[in-house]
Nucleic acid binder design. Structure first.
Length: 714
DNA sequence: GTGCGACGATTTTAG
DNA sequence: ATCGTCGCAC
């Protein structure tokens, strides 16, 4: 047997993890760029090919669909064969699969639907209204957070402690009401997928034992991001006959705010016999970049401890650019990229990272100005677009007419003369008779308990859905989508809308048909149902043409797991990064620091950091100090850039540029100055130094850039 | 049912 | 600044 492909190019630690035959669990603490995915995929290949573990006995869990797909295809590459019967997927995907298989034991209806967070939000809002609670006082967002948090902690409404607190009691009653509604209309939210399976396996011993016996090897990726319920879920498969490999990096835990708890530490306490393997050799970055990352993360108190090293080059220093405002920063970033391209490199080798999405705008404008193609990550994804969700709602209603969420979404989209009054009447009836809106609709028609006009509209709606259901029973999936798009009137609705937006909407609808054409499912024979579940569980990419050569703009969070030869960290300012809301608490500041660590370790060759003295935020001018994280980098790794001029004094020692400029020219922002020709004005901004020092002055009738030596302070 | 102006909030985000 | 939501007028 040729094991070369599996063992090739592995260092000792990696090889140890891949080939381990110890009985105990293995915790792989994998630093950034240390070949974590390589270890996971080769381990699976090793298990199958060498240890003769059947593919069906392997359970591999990831957080994102992308990671799951990548893992599967890399294993298949190594083995030169498809591994269809191996369970690789996201926590939610695997749970969904189990619930489909055991829906009856889990007390679910066969045609239950998965609800995404947008559906959940809408449902909560409708619930609040029906309970007569004011949205101002009971913010739907907070309630959504409350419910999900309780589910993540494994708590049903009756188990949530209320401490006789009226506010908490109300929250619990909303939670209770929400849960009852979900059961009634046959929908399951994301957190519920996990909780349901936990309860299912806990309740049904035979089922639990079946899976415990089946899964001999359990592998978990990004273990540091797991939350309470995921931890509990993983442990339900534990038995005498299987073991775990958990891969993660405590230094890259950046989702504490999303519920990730310190599960690496907890695991090592709960299962102290676990073998720990550290991957500390980095294959990605230059020594300089790694030293900076190590220096920054060393400031965190709570860590397991780890020191990345590389045998690679020293590389170039980390360049710091102090911009006087956000526009200047953006322009400079474009300059960096231009230079990079002039040197014969590609656009998609550059990543521009920022803390919050709002920062992308100015950068985008600069890239448009500089005529550089870019792509912004994040934003609305394919299956989250309104027109797509509308179409899917019709399809959901065909599958399950009692799905009130879907019903509410499209009852009057496109408009068909069913107004607020009619809808409110249906809601009331549904509530008092404890039936779904669809059933209420039928009942109203039967009893003719509304005006003729409303009845007529409702009748038309009911026969529309019924006809669609009847026709679609005979059709292929793609034909169903096409039929729904046209017969619902959605196509016509968007067609008569004018403008660029409407055209993209129609294109998206076409795209949905295409997606349906190529959709297959190994998990389910009911293709329509699987398609709908897939839409919720895999919302799709934000934008198409992924493989084109664009500069990559994204938040630090979405950069995790990626790598780029050139990285620019923008907005390195206290208050922005670390974010204002994280400054007070040590725990939160440490998470920001880990985020910085993640950002730095994305860079392979060149790393830039930029900050702006003045930044327009929420329409106001804000003054920020350079980020404390810059000061945490040893000065000898830095080089400060100032408009064509290199300043030898590193920023960690320098005054901030405003003070520096003021000391040199005796001019401050806001100072009143006099110019021979233009008269008196106010200093808005400054740039440069020495003979090149310039100020921007606003006079009564104009604003001008002037050499600092030509104005005098009055 | 649509259009318009006021008002408020605005970190990060996968499934 | 800007985006989403809400109430109101037509």
């Amino acid at each position: 047997m040729d094991l070369t492909p599996i063992l090739n190019h592995l260092n000792d630690d990696q090889r140890k993890a891949v080939t381990s035959e110890v009985d105990s669990d293995i915790m792989v603490i994998a630093g950034a760029g240390s070949g974590k995915t390589r270890v996971l995929t080769r381990r699976i290949a090793w298990l199958i090919q060498v240890m003769q573990v059947p593919a069906t006995a392997i359970l591999a869990v990831t957080f994102t669909n992308k990671a799951a797909h990548e893992m599967r295809s890399r294993v298949e590459e190594l083995l030169h064969m498809p591994v269809r019967n191996m369970w690789i997927g996201t926590f939610h995907g695997l749970c969904h699969r189990m619930l489909r298989l055991h829906y009856a034991d889990a007390d679910l209806v066969e045609n239950f639907q998965v609800m995404d967070s947008d559906d959940q939000y809408r449902l909560i809002r409708r619930l609040l209204k029906s309970m007569g609670l004011d949205e101002g006082q009971w913010s739907p967002k907070e309630i959504q957070w409350f419910i999900n948090k309780k589910k993540d902690d494994g708590l049903r409404p009756d188990k949530v402690p209320h401490y006789d607190n009226l506010h908490t009691k109300t929250l619990i009653s909303i939670y209770q009401n929400y849960q009852t509604t979900c059961e009634k209309i046959g929908v399951v939210d994301f957190a519920e997928l996990l909780l349901r399976v936990c309860e299912l396996l806990q309740k049904h011993e035979a089922l639990r034992q079946h899976y415990q016996r089946r899964f001999k090897k359990i592998l978990v990726d990004e273990f540091q991001d797991t939350n309470q319920i995921q931890y509990r879920w993983l442990n339900l498969f534990r038995s005498e006959t299987n073991d775990y490999m958990l891969v993660g990096d405590d230094d890259q835990s950046i989702y504490g705010w999303r519920g990730a708890s310190r599960n690496i530490e907890r695991y090592l306490e709960d299962y102290p016999q676990t073998e720990i393997i550290r991957l500390e050799q980095n294959y990605r970055s230059t020594t300089t970049i790694l030293q900076a990352a190590n220096a920054i993360i060393a400031n965190n108190q709570s860590r397991l401890g780890k020191q990345l090293w590389t045998s690679g080059h020293h590389g170039e220093p980390i360049r710091i650019y102090a911009a006087y405002n956000d526009l200047d920063e953006a322009k400079y970033v474009a300059t960096i990229v231009k230079k990079w391209l002039q040197d014969g490199n590609r656009r998609d080798e550059c990543a521009i990272l920022y803390r919050s999405n709002a920062q992308s705008r100015v950068l985008e404008e600069a890239f448009i100005q500089a005529n550089i193609a870019y792509r912004v990550y994040g934003g609305l994804r394919f299956y989250e677009r309104a027109e797509i969700k509308d179409t899917l709602a019709y399809m959901r209603l065909i599958v399950n007419p009692n799905d009130d969420s879907a019903f509410e979404r499209i009852i009057n989209t496109p408009t068909r003369g069913i107004g607020h009054a009619t809808l409110e009447h249906l809601r009331q009836l549904a509530k008092t008779a404890d039936i779904s809106l669809w059933q209420a609709c039928l009942q109203v028609i039967e009893t003719k308990s509304l005006s003729a006009r409303a009845l007529n509209a409702l009748e038309r709606f009911v026969s529309l859905i019924s006809d669609m259901a009847q026709t679609c029973a005979e059709l292929e999936l793609a034909e169903i989508v096409e039929h729904v798009i046209h017969h619902s009137g959605l196509h016509f609705h968007y067609q008569k809308e004018k403008g660029e937006k409407a055209r993209t909407r129609l294109e998206n609808l076409d795209e949905l048909v295409t997606a349906a054409k190529t959709f297959t499912s190994e998990e389910s024979s009911n293709l329509l149902q699987a398609f709908l579940a897939n839409a919720a569980l895999e919302a799709g990419e934000g934008q198409a043409d992924e493989h084109t050569d664009y500069v990559q703009l994204m938040t630090l969070h979405s950069a995790k797991g990626l790598e780029f030869p050139l990285v620019v960290l923008t907005g390195m300012e206290d208050g922005l990064f670390p974010h204002q809301m994280c400054l007070d608490e040590l725990k939160q500041l440490e998470e920001e620091r880990r985020l910085c660590y993640v950002g730095i370790t994305r860079a392979k060759q060149q790393l830039f950091m930029t900050y702006a003295e003045i930044r327009r935020q929420h329409g106001r001018e804000m003054y920020h100090k350079p980020s404390r994280f810059i000061r945490e980098i040893p000065a000898e790794l830095l080089e400060e850039i100032r408009l064509q001029t290199k300043i030898s004094r590193p920023v960690s020692l320098a005054m901030n540029t405003r003070d520096y400029f003021a000391a040199e020219t005796a001019i401050n922002i806001g100072a009143h100055v006099l110019h021979q020709k233009f008269g008196e004005g106010i200093v808005m901004a400054f740039e440069g130094q020495g003979d090149n020092a310039r100020v921007q002055v606003r006079f009564s009738d104009q604003t001008r850039w002037l050499l600092a030596s030509f104005v005098e302070v009055v």
